[in-house]
Design a protein around this nucleic acid. Structure first.
Lengths: 139, 139
DNA sequence: TCGATATCGAGACTCAGGCTCATGACCGCC
DNA sequence: GGCGGTCATGAGCCTGAGTCTCGATATCGA
């Protein structure tokens, strides 16, 4: 079972229709590498309208199967997301992106809440760097 | 000495000219509250062109006296920045923004670097929540 | 099969930000 | 104080990402 199949089941379970364009977009996203811009999807799915691409990306974000990433230059990209809460680590040289999670980060948030009196509702954490392969190549 | 004066000195020290539009923008930014959109500045500084506002914001970012903040909805705002490295905590109800820094976060980054082999070059960390006053008002 | 309605696509629109280039303002030098 | 090189400006057009509208169409439960 491909990840597209899993997502189709998620859609169906939540009462969304399984339409041709949605299936097409799921397939396309599976072929676009570890992250992609909305317009990459538009370009790779001729026959599916721009509006539909953006609507579908938004829907998939709400369902938690796609997540949005802010790149170093401030532009946004999308990524098929694992189930659990995670953050992104992006190589600024080759563009590789990987997920990580951190209990320590949760501790940081708890500490911030304690010190400021805030109730934390959400956060954004993106890390940019150079992967081991690019370091080796550059050295 | 106002913060505008301090920034003017920074500009001069780095070899940038002190022009009328730049002075005007510095004054305006001092009156716009703790964070503002680029268009707030455009609107509050009639007589200064849009391009100049964006150019100046970019210049001030490079100088480290203004920082960019990604809001919860993904839009960007600007903020007069303190000197040292910091992060933003934003109340989603009243819009209050405050800065914080965290040694623990640096530890998280070090741990991520160790686990992944990446050299960390930059990161983005924004926290959204509800401030103590808004919690009290809402309760 | 049928009908209610969720979804679609085309295209115009918005909004943030960037680019160009002729004009104008700074400021170091004499 | 005046000059001139060059940095900065602003008007307006451009781009890219995302949204909205609305008539047409496809999906799926009954």
């Amino acid at each position: 079972m491909t990840s597209a199949d899993v997502i189709e089941q998620t859609l169906a379970r939540r009462g969304y229709r399984l339409t041709g364009p949605r299936r097409a977009l799921l397939v396309v996203m599976g072929t676009l590498g570890d992250h992609f811009a909305a317009d990459d999807v538009v370009g790779a799915a001729p026959g599916v309208g721009r509006a539909t691409v953006f609507r579908t990306l938004k829907l998939l974000q709400d369902l938690g199967v796609v997540c949005q990433v802010v790149l170093e230059d401030g532009s946004t990209a999308y990524r098929l997301a694992p189930d659990e809460h995670h953050h992104h680590l992006l190589c600024v040289e080759c563009g590789e992106m990987r997920d990580f999670s951190s209990d320590d980060l949760e501790a940081v948030l708890a500490e911030v809440a304690r010190r400021t009196g805030y109730t934390i509702e959400a956060h954004r954490f993106e890390v940019y760097g150079r992967c081991a392969a690019c370091q080796a190549a550059g050295a």
